[in-house]
Computed example of a mutant assay.
Amino acid sequence: MQRFSSLDLQRNVARVQEAALRESVTVSYHGRDRLVIMPVDEFERLRRRDRVVVAIEDLPDEFADALSEPYANPAQAALDHLLDD
């Protein structure tokens, strides 16, 4: 991923845009990463990966059963003592 300063972006918008079409670029401000510029098709691909929210009634039984268990993995129960004050 290429990095540009915000000053680079102001002075060379076309160059930064061309770089962002090849791969995502990071824009920094006062030495800190602040923005990522990426091609629209990559942004859309990432958006399609967003989670889908469903009602618990619509979950398959195996998932609903797992949610009702106090521990998904019995080994996790052994760590409860670390939470005691």
Rank of each mutant, 00 (worst) to 15 (best):
D65Q: 11
S6T: 08
Y29N: 06
L83I: 08
R22I: 05
M1E: 14
V54A: 07
D41S: 13
L7P: 00
E57S: 10
A20R: 01
D80Y: 06
L67A: 08
S28Y: 01
D8I: 03
A75P: 04
P70M: 07
S6Q: 13
L67W: 12
P74Q: 03
V25W: 03
M1Y: 07
R45H: 05
A19L: 03
V36M: 15
A64N: 09
L79I: 11
E69A: 14
R11N: 08
D85V: 12
D33P: 04
T26P: 01
E18T: 10
F4E: 02
D8R: 02
P74W: 03
E44N: 10
L79N: 15
D85R: 15
M38G: 08
A20V: 02
P70D: 09
V36K: 15
D65C: 02
L46H: 09
R3K: 11
R11G: 00
R22E: 15
A14R: 14
A72M: 09
F43K: 11
E57D: 15
D58W: 02
R15A: 14
H30M: 09
A77Q: 11
A64Q: 13
R47P: 03
A14Y: 00
V53C: 06
R48A: 12
Q10W: 13
D41W: 09
L21F: 09
F4L: 06
D58Y: 01
A64F: 12
G31S: 12
A78H: 02
Y29A: 08
D80R: 10
V13M: 12
Y71L: 05
A64Y: 13
L46P: 00
N73P: 00
R34V: 09
A66P: 04
D84S: 09
D58R: 07
D58V: 01
A66W: 12
V54C: 06
M1N: 14
A72D: 13
H81C: 06
A77H: 06
V53F: 11
A75N: 12
V25G: 02
M1F: 06
P39N: 13
Q2H: 13
R45D: 05
A19M: 08
E23K: 02
A77S: 10
E62G: 00
R51E: 03
Q76L: 07
S6R: 15
R3W: 11
S6D: 04
P39V: 00
R34E: 15
A14F: 06
I56H: 01
R15H: 04
L82C: 02
T26M: 10
L59R: 10
Q2D: 14
L82S: 07
P39Y: 06
R3E: 14
P70I: 08
V16A: 06
H81A: 12
A19R: 04
Q2E: 15
L67N: 05
R11V: 04
A72V: 09
A77C: 03
V40R: 08
Q76I: 05
I37M: 12
P70L: 08
Q10M: 12
A66L: 09
L46G: 04
D61G: 07
S24I: 01
R11S: 02
L59T: 05
T26Y: 14
A55C: 08
A14P: 02
